[in-house]
Each structure stands twice: as C-alpha cells, then as structure tokens.
Design a binder for these strands. Structure first.
Lengths: 209, 209
DNA sequence: TCGTTTCCTGACCATATGGTCAGATATCAG
DNA sequence: CTGATATCTGACCATATGGTCAGGAAACGA
C-alpha cells in the first residue's frame, strides 16, 4: 500500500516502467486519439508486452487519464511565472515564453489535452470545473488589477487568457500544419521568431509596449 | 456517370441523404475522432441503416475525407473578405469576423480539421501542400504589402496568420472548455464580446488601430 | 405495362481490440 | 535458504467494428 515501504530496487524499476508507458502512451494518444490508440501499439512503443500495461494501468482510460493529468500539471507550473511579476509586460511575457517552450517540448501532451477538450472532456470535466476554473478566475483578477492600475489597455481578461492559450498551444497542436507551410520543422531560429512574434503582437495588443 | 442525367426525384433524394450522412458524420467525427467514430453510430444519427452509408461512401475514410474537405471549402470562402479590402483594418477585421462566425456556426467541422491536423494530416496532406500553402503565400504577400505601405506595424505575416487561425478556431475547438469557464454556453452577447476582443487585440497588436 | 437501373437493407464475416488469467519469474524480508 | 510477495507474460476470450453481399423495393424510360 504505502509506496515508501516498497524496496528501492522494485520502486526504481516500477517508476522507470511507468514512465516508459506514459511516454509511449502520450505519443500514441496524440497521434491516434483515444479511440484510435490501441493498447497493443502503446505496448510496442514502450517495448513491453501488452499484458504488462494492464498490470500498471487497469484500463486504457486509466492510462489516458494519467497522461492528461501530467500535461495539465506542467501547464499549471508554467503559470507561476505570471504571479510574481510586477506588471503585464513581465508577467504575460514570461507566461508566453513558458507556454511556447512547453509547446515545443511537450507537443504530444498538448495534443492529447486538445483532443480531450474537443471531445467534450469526458474524463477531465472535473479538472475544468475545479482547478482550471479557479486558476482562471485568479489570473483574470490579476489582469483586471493591472488594467485598473493603468498598466495595460482595458481588455477582457478572460478573452485575453483564451488568446494566450490559443496562440501558444497552436504551435504544438497545429505543429504539423505549420511545418508544412514553413517548408520543414521549425528551427531554433524559427522558434525564437515565433516566440517574439506572439509576444510582440499580444503585448502591443494590450497596449503594454 | 453524368449527374445531370440523373432524374429529378432521385437526384433530390440522393442529395438529401448524402447531406444527412455528412451532417451526422461531422458530428460524430468531431465528438469521437476518426478512430473513435463508428459507422454504426453515424448511421444511427443519420437515421439510416449502416449498409446504406456504404452505398453512398465506400469506406469510412471516404466519408471522413468528404467532411474535412467541406470545412476547408468554407474556410477558403471566408478568406475572400480579406482580398478586396483597402487595408488591414478592413481586411483583417473582416477575416476575423468571418472566421469567428464559422467557429460559431460550424464548430464540428473545425474540430474535425483540428483533429486531422493534430494526427499528422494523414488524409489531407495534399491540401496542406497545395491549396493551403498557395493561399498562405498569397495572403502573406498581401500583409507584407500593407506593411510596406506603412498601413500596419512590421510583423511577420506568417505568424500573424497563425495567430488569426489560432484565436478564431479556439472558440470552436475549445468551445467546451470556454463554456465551462464561462459558466454556460456563450450567448449572443458573449459572442459579440469575443469577436470584439479578438479584433481589438489583434488590430491593436498590428498597430492598425 | 414492363424490363432496367438505381437504391436500399438485413444478415453475415473476417478481423482487431480491450481485457483476463493462470502460471512463471524475480525480488524481498527474515 | 525459504516462504511470501510483487512483477511479468503468453495464451485466451467476448465483443465490437468495418465492410460485403444477395436479394428486395422503388423509380425510371419507353
């Protein structure tokens, strides 16, 4: 029951295997969607027998839930950059940087989340209604404070947040489309340009530049 | 072979049935993804026997391809508003209005497209490489012209287009999430506010307001 | 009316999938 | 070393799915 009781050797193995499964699952779920993904394929990618997956995750949905939760945690952490900031230029700028970096490093997680929401959030409805809602309310209030203090143009805070999510996640979710139009995957320089473009547009849009 | 030869009664029936199938398919594909959608469910939604679907569309992929193509056509039409415009305020403003309206009226089509692209565009790769690429090149040139004429701030035209797509389609693709955060589906007033917010932010962002 | 073509459909099939389970294997505490 | 526990896996199963097909019904031209 208690994981701290579990011996070192086994615990290490367990974490390693679980991590491999999650990584494989994230990739497969992102590329095929929940319905299109198969436990067999995830097992193959992870290099494990299918039955072993069911030892770690009872059902496909359990595994999926874990993958979605992971990306959500990552996003929540990225938001902390926004809180300590003295104003919108630093706060929103840092948030954009962080979100863009996540789109670059975790494109599959972003896709899984997008897919889940698009399908009506059947397994993460509670996250939306609790954690995300609270988070949104708090940041909207922060933005409103900046507006009241005359640090930025009077924009609707919620819609600004939607725009931040939309623009940054677009580079993950629609990465394939962008790559095709770009004539190949984005280079380091391309990513810097993308980041600068998004930041420049939005900061100018809120009148903070 | 030639459809104009087909008698009126049959032609009318055929179009009606085909339309019903496409409408049902769009809904089901959007809600379940390509892999998760079943011909049986599409048939049920359309109110037809499953075998009948296969009379109109040989395979699931054929039907899917049709649905994706339909939304793509709609988007292409929306772009025409941009061309005749004398400058960015009218052109981009009209484009945002049109895209937002499509997000509102055809959220399912937008989701199907997003899902397709996220999965690596297995069936519409050619659209991306031909039609969409040409379209993008043309509009980027138009935007660059506006920049050169001093009608707007010097922004990267491609990234501006990505931002336009991201922000407008977000209201369709993530409509569920937005509805939850909004405490219910967007009302007419909410949509007007969303439209105004997106337009205001972006037009200010490109220095055209 | 009549033969022809198009349209429709229930029943069926091969296959793939999520999940199970008994038994083998490895690791552990004592 | 030994018994107990956790981990692993090949073989298996019930079910669901995309797709087929033979034959019936409806619409058509003449």
């Amino acid at each position: 029951m208690n994981e701290t009781v579990r011996p070192a050797r086994r615990l290490e193995n367990r974490q390693q295997t679980e991590s491999a499964i999650c990584q494989a699952a994230e990739k497969v779920f992102a590329e095929a969607g929940f319905g299109g993904a198969t436990m067999q394929l995830i097992a193959d990618v992870a290099g494990l027998p299918k039955a072993n997956l069911h030892y770690y995750f009872a059902t496909k949905e359990d595994l999926y839930r874990r993958v979605v939760r992971d990306i959500f945690e990552i996003w929540l952490q990225a938001a902390e950059a926004m809180d300590a900031a003295p104003g919108p230029v630093e706060g929103i700028g840092a948030y954009i940087d962080a979100k863009m970096e996540i789109s670059r490093r975790h494109p599959n997680g972003s896709k899984v989340w997008a897919s889940e929401v698009m399908h009506g959030a059947p397994v993460i409805q509670d996250y939306l209604e609790t954690t995300l809602r609270d988070w949104t309310t708090g940041r909207a209030a922060l933005i409103q404070r900046w507006v009241d203090e005359g640090k930025m143009r009077a924009v609707n805070p919620e819609h600004l947040l939607y725009m931040l999510w939309a623009t940054t996640q677009h580079y993950a979710d629609f990465g394939h489309q962008i790559a095709v139009l770009n004539g190949g995957a984005l280079t380091e320089a391309d990513w810097q340009a993308a980041k600068a473009s998004v930041k420049g547009m939005i900061l100018a849009g809120i009148g903070a530049l």
